[in-house]
Amino acid sequence: MDEEQLLQFLQRIDELTLDQRPLFGKMNVRQMVCHCADFFRMAKGTKRANEYGKVDPEHIKLLARFGKTAPTPKGFGQVEGGGTKPTEFEKDKLILKDFIQEFSELSEDYDFAVHPYFGKLDHKRWTGLAIYHLNHHLRQFGV
């Protein structure tokens, strides 16, 4: 993630407000912020999914290619209660922004955790997923 992308993500997160409603999906804005933070916890291995290898990665890629929502790894579903619980909205936004900043500074040889669908990924692939995931959910709330 380059500096411009980083700054754009941080600005878009700042634009989120509690009264925003999703354009699609079931999460509210508070849940979405925590869900996005959980993505970075997953990448670093501080939050693990409840199952690995149960979803075909090619199916996920196909869904993404056609703009469809991909299934959430077990243990990360906000609506189902598996994700990190929202606390105070501005604090949760700051946590997300800190995770994004930290992620953007990781070295090219950083040893990421195993992704529950895609397995072992390098820096480039984790970064691509992070950008895709953040864009998807920020668009979900119109920012």
Rank of each mutant, 00 (worst) to 15 (best):
L18K: 12
L23V: 10
Q8K: 12
N28H: 13
L18D: 05
L7H: 08
C34M: 13
F9T: 01
V33I: 11
R30L: 06
F9L: 09
C36G: 05
C36V: 08
T17K: 06
L7F: 07
D14Y: 01
M27V: 08
K26H: 13
L7P: 00
M32V: 02
M32I: 00
C36P: 07
C34W: 10
R30I: 00
N28C: 14
R12V: 00
T17W: 01
F24W: 15
L7W: 06
L16M: 11
F24E: 08
V29D: 02
V33R: 03
V33P: 04
V29M: 05
I13K: 00
G25D: 11
R21G: 13
C36A: 15
V29K: 05
M32K: 04
L16I: 05
L16V: 08
V29P: 08
M32W: 05
L18V: 08
R21H: 14
L23E: 08
M27D: 11
T17G: 05
F9C: 00
R12T: 00
R12I: 00
D14V: 01
E15P: 07
Q8L: 14
L10C: 01
F24Y: 15
Q20H: 09
R30V: 03
D14W: 00
Q11E: 14
L16D: 05
Q8G: 04
P22E: 07
G25P: 11
Q11K: 13
L10E: 02
K26T: 11
T17F: 03
F24H: 15
C34Y: 06
H35N: 03
F9S: 03
H35R: 03
P22S: 08
Q8A: 08
L7K: 09
C34K: 15
R30G: 14
R12Y: 00
L7M: 14
K26V: 13
L16T: 08
M32R: 06
Q11R: 12
L23K: 15
Q8C: 03
P22G: 06
K26N: 15
